[in-house]
Amino acid sequence: MRAHPTEAEKHLWSLLRDRRLAAFKFRRQQVIEPYIVDFICLEQRLIVEADGSHHADSEDDARRDAFLRIQGFRVLRFWNNDISLQRSAVADAIFAELTSPHPPVASRRAPPSPARGEGYGD
């Protein structure tokens, strides 16, 4: 975990902290083994990342995002420059994601049980 956030992370945190965005609770620098995410709303299973230029075309980020999606999270990534210069658009995009339906995590849904006759002829 970093003790010194980037300017973009400071801007995002000022938007997300203390339930400032539509009363949704966000946490900063949350561990989701083996990763640490920038910001997370556990209630909506939404992760928000602030990315600098070193993230461009990053295969590590693609693997990380795939892992987090398998865990049932949605991941939004914003360029640091956009966070600094287009705060309103970034806030609107996060709000839209927070308020859009999110399908349940696959691991929370039990498949039909053929032993109990479920799933046949439905």
Results as ranks from 00 to 15, higher is better:
Arg63Lys: 11
Ser88Ile: 15
Ile40Gln: 00
Leu85Glu: 11
Ile36Asp: 03
Thr6Cys: 04
His102Val: 00
Glu7Asn: 09
Tyr35Met: 05
Glu118Ile: 09
Ala50Gly: 08
Asp60Ala: 12
Ile83Pro: 10
Phe67Gly: 02
Gln29Phe: 14
Ser88Trp: 12
Arg27Trp: 07
Pro101Ala: 02
Pro112Thr: 07
Pro103Met: 02
Ala62Trp: 08
His4Asn: 11
Glu49Cys: 08
Asp38Glu: 06
Leu21Pro: 01
Ala110Ile: 13
Ser107His: 12
Phe39Ser: 01
Leu76Lys: 04
Leu46Trp: 08
Val48Thr: 03
Met1Phe: 11
Ile32Ala: 04
His102Lys: 06
Phe95Leu: 15
Phe26Val: 05
Met1Asp: 08
Gly117Ala: 07
Gly121Met: 05
Ala106Asp: 10
Phe78Ala: 08
Trp13Ser: 08
Ala62Ile: 14
Val105Leu: 11
Ala66Tyr: 12
Ala22Gln: 05
Val105Thr: 02
His55Leu: 07
Asn80Gly: 06
Gln30Trp: 15
Arg20Trp: 00
Gly72Met: 04
Leu12Asp: 09
Glu33Ser: 09
Phe78Pro: 13
Thr99Asn: 14
Arg20Phe: 00
Glu118Lys: 06
Phe78Trp: 04
Ile32Cys: 05
Arg108Asp: 12
Arg20Met: 04
Val37Ala: 06
Ile32Phe: 10
Ala56Thr: 15
Ala3His: 13
Arg109Ala: 06
Val37Lys: 03
Leu12Asn: 09
Asp122Met: 11
Ala89Ile: 15
Asp57Ala: 08
Arg19Asp: 01
Pro34Lys: 02
Gln71Ile: 00
Pro103Asp: 03
Ser14His: 11
Leu12Ala: 13
His55Pro: 10
Val105His: 14
Arg69Ser: 01
Gln86Thr: 10
His55Gln: 07
Arg87His: 08
Val90Leu: 03
Arg74Gly: 00
Leu12Val: 13
Ile36His: 08
Tyr35Pro: 08
Ser14Asp: 15
Ala93Tyr: 09
Ser100Val: 03
